[in-house]
Design a protein around this nucleic acid. Sequence first.
DNA 1: AGCAGCCTGTCA
DNA 2: TGACAGGCTGCT
Length: 292
Amino acid sequence: MPELPEVETICRQLKRHLEGGLITRLRLARPDILRGAPERALASVLGRRIEKVSRRGKLVRLGLSGGRLLVFHLKMTGRLVVGPERRPDKHNHLLVTVGGAGGACQLHFDDPRRFGRIWLLPSAGAEEMPPFLNLGPDALAVTRPDLAARLGASSRRLKPLLLDQKIVAGLGNIYADEILHRTGIHPLTRGRDLTAAKAAALWRNMRLVLRHAIRRGGSSVRDYVDPSGRRGSFQLEHAVYRREGLPCPRCPGTVRRIVVGGRGTYFCPRCQRPPPCGVTGRRAGGLTKGCP
DNA sequence: AGCAGCCTGTCA
DNA sequence: TGACAGGCTGCT
């Protein structure tokens, strides 16, 4: 489940290994995961140079010479692996051979669940087409007032709001829960009910948690590894994610799990106060009485 | 706004 | 062996 910190870690590695290299061979094993251009258009990528590796939200961009962009979304189980030439494994979807100053290497895009997608786009105007169309500002680029405005304009609960890539791009289930916990906000709080102080703290903690997770190489909860096969270590510092029944690290409370918008949501009911007039997380009632 | 569907590996 | 995991699209 690569989210912003994992994708950032991946990008930094790809940058080191791929930037400046020439694409000498391509093998698309599963044409159905390619979007934005027909399969035959992939041939036009041969011989182009990988000029710039970048990230926006959870998307990885390879900027190619000649105005092309190769974009990857890893979704849940996708992996980008770089290394010496080797046989593709059975879950390989795209194999790119890159010639560089230090000899050839290969980029493998593998995804056992096949949720992952690849786009081939013209770099001019790419921001106005899928998958960038409707994508909100990156979680590490959004300004404090912009985030406050985006959350405050909505009556939706904060958990689904933070997961909505149109609001802010890069957060997934792990970091949404960790950020809400660190800020002491109940996941069912509605966006419009955020106080200015809480919105500011949320922005600060979002940056803090994401930056710290990047320093740890991301979270390896189940099978995430970076392009060199190394696991991250931020999972060791998760305060709530997948810690149901365990003590909250910040207060004497116990971590609970509820389902919000179909997603498992972990929080501490003691230090993440219930929203003023909302559901408590157990069952509706009690607190809602008397609220306008 | 909420949920099925896409997928398959993993765990109870 | 069946439920579950979850990012995102598209449907209701």
